[in-house]
Design a binder for these strands. Structure first.
Length: 788
RNA sequence: GGGCGAUUAGCUCAGUUGGCUAGAGCACCUCGUUUACACCGAGGGGGUCAUAGGUUCGAGUCCUAUAUCGCCCACCA
């Protein structure tokens, strides 16, 4: 056996193996293989993420453990990587970073900055993934703004349009006044706030007074109707009467509405043109009412709001409340908590503005999407519930158009003469209607003047296609078809309602199938106190610092700490434990390997009791570990290996065989070496998915010459071996030895005797055979073991 | 308001279909340099398994309430 250094220099060796894997194409997808395919769809991260934190490491590593396991299990693994660099998140990032005022920059200039910025971001991610040893096939990468992704996104639009799932309509949509674009229901976040319920008095034409209650008095200029519950006796004689609104002097009529709760507030509700879901629903029930378009897309009132024109919502509120007080129309106000919807990207209050947008019809197929959710294999299972609830609660069709610059353009124009929508030809994709022109005149009026669609697509319009984009990177068409649906989607739980849901929508409509068979959902990375990691709190550590300090293997080891789907706190001690495991593996291997003969694989000759025992334990560990990995329970898989390696193998077995490998008895030595070899190669294989660097190092140091595969990561996973099985009785019999060993150790420790020091005799109540007595005396340095 | 998780040693967490005299790692205390490892080994202290009921021969594990925390969802204006 060649020289075995005393210490393992992870900094240098990890760098070495990174390069080796890349040079040798270890993780390259083999297009000619006929092994079963295992394809993986992991989230293309937003490259605009300003910082990478341990939460990212956690969720990507967890998927990667499984990927490595499957690769060793004999699957032809397809693991591409994408970067999400289109859409609103990137735009907001660039706007903030460069303090851009979009009115003072051209569309093209802005897009150029975005493209430049995303290149930098993608490189940062790639560097981190590589230093972590992520086993991606880097020749298969995509970005969501590249031509390939644009082509597929535009194809998706055309196909869904053809299938009648896409429509354009002018109706109230969710609107962000800060981003100045329409958004989708999935982009909303609910925020509970301390608010006030204002009781406002209005005059009735009969001379009576009517008090209605609202949390949003600022919408008064857009009031389009007032309703009470049909059987509410208090207001019976006022129904149908003209109500004169305070401040604006406009009038509406008092109507009845089943949805009004007579017990809440004054039992009188006013409805406004952009107040919220309740108002939209009310308008549907009261088509006679006329919406008042008093709010501009920038969030300011316009001339329809009379004296309140030009005011922002917030300012309008205080002004209107003030004015109401002044004229004595504010009866009272009560404190209450209520839920406001905000845009998740910028936390701006969402408004409801009637605009013309593109939609994908999802509401009509809610049941089918729910059914797809049932067909999907969920790991862990309880995550299914989040999906189910979301699908059931859907209220809006998916608005896919954004009034922004940086995104995939819609493949269409409008005829300037007749307004007809002219779609691009599939064969011309991708196109940009701003630069390209239709290749034929308007099919309706033969006109040749066109207006491009200036809106861009919602970023999810593209990322919902990642299974297609990923598999589409395979040139071989026959093979490409075998790649869809993919095998595994791995993602975090907070994007179930977006990424997962939208991907299922697309696959269902396009292919009438699920996009993948399994979904593995990770939890959140939290800080040490259990708080969500956020930029504002600054409560995160930089992964690259940890990797430099403890090594990538140690960092990855930490990521196994959370059970599947569970949240995990940051805990540097766990990283240290990973580092210690690496060191321990190194040292244990040093002991074993220095006894190995490099020429040929050892074979089993005459195994001794302790050999049979450890091999049986090894066998159990293989079974347990495999079973857990098959269920995506990387955490439990690691646990099984840890227990075996530290407790059984190091604490007991290595102590048992030391004297044999240093000794002269060839038969005894050979069987010890066979057992050591079998155990060690298995241990490093079982650890390989989690600790790819140290296991590769150990594999290359000795096993490669005999095991043939170029890297441990493409070597075959260890299978349970029938020959190694032991009956329960045999195991129990041997465990008596362990008990006596424990007793000897305890005796020595309590008496301050070094474990290496020989003692004269040791008495035990446990009945041991002569073989067993012999084993205890030699390994524990007791001249004579006296047992019953 | 509805739902889903969680609640086990000082800390972070395991405890699979009920059999546990409740485990691990860290931390703590004591001992020990032994030809793999002091980034170590050995030994030890420490828990009425959130609370209250119930099912059972037997419950950390199942049921029913309650409490606290976290998350998801939700138009009572």
């Amino acid at each position: 056996m060649k020289e075995f250094p005393k210490n393992y220099n992870f900094t240098e060796r990890e760098e070495h193996w990174r390069k080796f894997w890349e040079d040798e194409d270890i993780y390259k997808f083999d297009e000619s293989s006929d092994k079963p395919i295992y394809s993986v769809d992991t989230p293309p991260p937003y490259v605009s993420a300003e910082h990478l934190h341990t939460g990212h490491i956690m969720s990507y590593s967890q998927a990667e453990f499984v990927v490595r396991y499957k690769r060793m299990k004999g699957f032809n693994v397809y693991y591409p990587m994408g970067f999400d660099d289109n859409g609103l998140p990137t735009e907001r990032f660039v706007e903030k970073k460069y303090k851009i005022d979009k009115s003072k920059i051209t569309r093209k200039e802005f897009i150029d900055i975005c493209l430049k910025e995303t290149k930098v971001g993608a490189q940062n991610y790639k560097n981190l993934w590589q230093s972590l040893g992520t086993s991606v096939d880097w020749s298969k990468t995509y970005s969501t703004i590249d031509k390939h992704s644009q082509k597929i996104s535009q194809w998706s639009f055309l196909d869904l349009h053809k299938k009648g799932k896409i429509y354009r309509a002018k109706k109230p949509v969710l609107w962000c006044t800060s981003c100045r674009t329409a958004i989708a229901q999935a982009d909303l976040e609910a925020e509970e706030r301390e608010s006030k319920l204002y009781y406002i008095k209005a005059k009735v034409e009969t001379g009576d007074e009517l008090t209605f209650a609202t949390t949003r008095p600022e919408l008064l200029p857009a009031c389009m109707g007032i309703s009470v519950y049909p059987n509410d006796k208090r207001y019976k004689n006022l129904i149908g009467k003209k109500i004169i609104l305070p401040l604006t002097g406009k009038h509406v009529y008092l109507s009845t509405d089943e949805e009004v709760d007579p017990k809440y507030g004054s039992g009188v509700v006013y409805f406004c043109s952009f107040g919220g879901q309740d108002c939209i629903d009310w308008l549907e029930r009261h088509p006679e009412a006329k919406p008042i378009h008093a709010l501009d897309p920038n969030g300011r009132f316009n001339e329809q709001a009379g004296v309140y024109a030009d005011l922002k919502m917030k300012d309008a509120r205080s002004k209107i409340v003030e004015d109401l007080k002044e004229i004595g129309a504010l009866e009272k106000q009560e404190d209450l908590k209520n839920v406001t919807f905000i845009h998740e990207r910028c936390s701006t209050d969402v408004e409801y503005i009637s605009t013309e947008q593109w939609f994908i019809n999802v509401l009509d197929s809610k049941n089918e999407f729910a059914k797809r959710g049932e067909e999907l294999n969920w790991y862990p299972n309880f995550m299914h519930r989040i999906y189910k609830d979301w699908v059931t609660a859907l209220k809006w069709d998916w608005c896919i158009s954004r009034q922004r610059y940086y995104g995939v353009p819609f493949p269409l124009w409008y005829c300037s003469d007749c307004g007809e929508i002219v779609l691009a030809d599939e064969k011309d994709l991708p196109i940009d209607p701003m630069n390209d022109r239709p290749n034929k005149p308007c099919p309706k009026c033969k006109g040749t003047n066109f207006k491009p669609e200036e809106d861009v697509m919602d970023t999810w319009m593209t990322s919902s296609l990642t299974p297609l984009i990923g598999s589409g990177l395979i040139q071989n068409e026959k093979l490409q078809q075998k790649m869809y649906p993919e095998t595994l989607r791995a993602q975090a739980f907070e994007i179930i309602r977006t990424w997962l849901f939208y991907t299922i929508v697309k696959s269902h409509y396009h292919h009438d199938s699920l996009p993948f068979k399994d979904v593995m959902i990770s939890g959140h990375g939290l800080d040490e106190q259990g708080r969500k990691i956020s930029k504002r709190l600054g409560n995160y550590v930089t992964p690259s610092t940890i990797i430099e300090q403890f090594g990538a293997d140690a960092m990855r080891y930490w990521a196994t700490g959370a059970s599947l789907g569970g949240n995990m706190r940051w805990n540097e001690d766990e990283v240290k434990k990973g580092k210690r495991t690496v060191t321990k593996l190194w040292n244990a291997s040093r002991l074993a390997m220095e006894s190995f003969d490099g020429q040929k694989k050892p074979v089993s000759s005459s195994l001794q009791d302790e050999d049979r025992w450890i091999l049986s334990r090894l066998n159990d560990t293989i079974k347990e570990c495999t079973e857990q990995f098959d269920k995506y329970e990387y955490s439990k898989a690691r646990n099984a290996v840890d227990t075996f390696f530290w407790n059984d193998f190091c604490d007991y077995y290595l102590e048992f065989v030391k004297y044999r490998i240093y000794g002269e008895d060839k038969v005894s030595k050979d069987s010890a070496i066979y057992t050591l070899y079998s155990s060690l190669i298995t241990i490093i294989k079982l650890y390989a998915p989690i600790l790819p660097f140290i296991t590769e190092e150990l594999y290359q140091l000795y096993f490669k010459g005999l095991e043939k595969e170029n890297s441990i990561h493409i070597s075959a996973w260890s299978n349970a071996n029938k020959d190694w099985e032991q009956t329960e009785k045999e195991t129990k019999e041997f465990e008596k030895v362990l008990k006596v060993v424990d007793a000897v150790r305890a005796y020595k420790t309590k008496n301050g005797i070094s474990l290496g020091k020989e003692i004269e005799e040791f008495k035990t109540e446990i009945k041991l055979s002569d073989n067993q007595k012999n084993l205890v005396s030699i390994t524990q340095k007791v001249k004579k073991v006296i047992s019953k």
